[in-house]
Amino acid sequence: MRQLDEFHEEAGARGMSDPSEVGHARHIHPSAKEYVRIGVILVILTALEVWVSYSSLPHGLLIGILFFLAFVKFGLVVLWFMHLRFDDARYSRFFIMGFAGACILFLVVLLLFKAFAG
């Protein structure tokens, strides 16, 4: 029945249930305490975002700060909640390909429209 291993449909699920392998991959996931800590930071950053958006900072600076805060939140969720910080680098490579690709391509599209000119 060894050959059965060659089938993987939904079997990530089955395959990963090997205790030794899973144990190795799993115990490096953050603890519940750490998750809660990240959650609290996310809430604080969001509150900060809202507060900043009501402030009367110059327009350019305001946008810069808001994007920076969003980026930090984005990073926290991706790195901790989605475990990219702890997981195999190949997952990150896939995701970065999509994320960076999207950022670059669509920035060029907006540039073609001179969307930031005025």
Binding site: F7, H8, E9, E10
Partner: peptide, 10 residues
């Protein structure tokens, strides 16, 4: 050298 694709039903 595989027996099928990764997700046959998909």
């Amino acid at each position: 050298g595989a027996r099928d694709v990764a997700f046959p039903r998909l």
